[in-house]
Amino acid sequence: MLLSISLIFIMGMCLGFICKKLHLPSLIGMLITGIVLGPFVFDLIDPSILNISSELRKIALIIILTRAGLGLDISGLKKIGRPAILMCFLPATCELLAMFIFGPKLLGLSLLEAAITGAVLAAVSPAVVVPRMVKLMDEGYGVKEGVPQLILAGASVDDVYVIVLFTTFVNMMQGEGVSVISFVNIPISILLGVVIGLLIGFLMSIYFKKIHIRDTSKVIIILCVSFLLVALEDSLKTSITFSALIAIMFIGVGLQKNRKEVAVRLSKKYEKLWVAAEVLLFVLVGAAINIDYITKVGVKAVILIFAALIFRMLGVFLCLIFSKLNKKERLFTMMAYTPKATVQAAIGGMPLALGFACGDTVLTVAVLAIVITAPIGAFAIDSSYKHLLKKS
């Protein structure tokens, strides 16, 4: 295992550095590292690491969401208003619609299979988007207009919305049917997540004010509470649940509102944690990529992905029609809402594991979406934000 960990970090960082020097996103190098080291090429990653790959990716996701919450300016979202709410579900719904239209024609899927494929494809990647929006907020680009705040909040809720839809469609495929309560649970889980996160953040701010401990200890406490929230959500068998990922992000928001100076210091700590988490996340995502699947579906899957992206960007455009953002800011938001990686890697293989006829197709589309959109989306964000957004 130690050899595998060494190879993951050394090769991941080296190839990431090389890509950065070539003016490409470093995550491309990390994805290539995962493909090369993964079980489908040289098989140099210990099976025990691959067995807990989903948990390790979830830890990385927790780190970036907490970091996002610590830097999220809610007042900026209030200025935007209605578009912020629409961004949570309308782009993903438009992308799902594209899958209904083109999936059966291009890949021969049934409508329910197209729905499952669309739910896997429709999520935006917090792993790509969140650190870049945090960077924009740190540098002051688009902050006054609320652009990074809008994308941050929308991307987080977008994932919850898509995962709930995916679970619903899987239940339908298994013959369990679907109830109204499963759709009612979407807004309730989001709202409960916000309330729980703000409450925990508020209680932590009081505790940190009265009990003086090192910032590193505070980070450990927040991480442990975040892990407990995820474990609690997974263990709940009730019809109504809460979103642990939303709660985790709003812990940071609650801390920021009540202990601004502490939130700033903790954000720096999380920034350092992300250096290691980013490498681990994208190398493990790369390790899940099976090159054989890509060659089987080929060009049709690529066309389907780009068609879905066009519909997603159209959805973002519709969200921003009556907003105060100018044309350049709207264009940036549309591009920033396209990368995919984390959710696709997490749930893309589930239909195959459940024995669905569309399992191979879903996994292939998910993998291709990661390979195509993560680098292109990250590159589009990194190369355009200084030209399209105003610096405060």
Rank of each mutant, 00 (worst) to 15 (best):
133 M>L: 03
245 L>V: 14
250 F>P: 10
355 G>T: 11
50 L>A: 12
367 V>M: 14
241 T>Y: 12
210 K>H: 14
120 V>R: 11
15 L>C: 01
278 E>D: 13
171 N>P: 03
122 A>F: 02
247 A>L: 10
213 I>L: 02
213 I>H: 06
3 L>G: 02
231 A>V: 00
96 L>C: 05
42 F>L: 09
53 S>G: 05
65 L>K: 02
391 K>C: 03
277 A>R: 02
90 L>G: 01
70 L>G: 00
231 A>F: 03
60 A>Y: 02
58 K>W: 13
256 Q>A: 13
58 K>I: 07
105 K>M: 15
381 I>F: 12
188 I>M: 00
326 N>D: 14
132 R>Y: 08
351 P>M: 15
294 I>C: 12
184 V>G: 07
49 I>C: 08
100 F>T: 10
142 G>W: 00
164 V>G: 01
308 A>F: 08
73 D>N: 15
204 M>Y: 14
372 I>P: 14
149 Q>G: 04
67 R>K: 15
7 L>V: 03
285 V>S: 04
195 V>T: 02
71 G>M: 09
220 I>Q: 11
248 I>W: 12
231 A>R: 06
257 K>G: 11
182 S>G: 00
211 I>H: 10
42 F>Y: 04
39 P>N: 09
45 I>F: 10
112 L>G: 07
302 V>T: 10
200 I>L: 05
259 R>Q: 15
241 T>W: 10
264 V>A: 11
160 V>K: 08
372 I>A: 08
334 M>Y: 08
314 L>Y: 11
80 I>M: 06
77 L>V: 05
296 K>Y: 14
329 E>Y: 01
214 R>N: 09
109 L>R: 14
131 P>I: 01
89 F>C: 07
160 V>A: 07
17 F>W: 14
223 L>I: 06
264 V>C: 11
46 D>Y: 05
232 L>I: 12
281 L>T: 08
333 T>H: 03
76 G>F: 00
72 L>G: 09
55 E>R: 12
219 V>L: 07
128 V>S: 12
303 I>R: 00
205 S>L: 00
322 F>N: 09
217 S>Q: 13
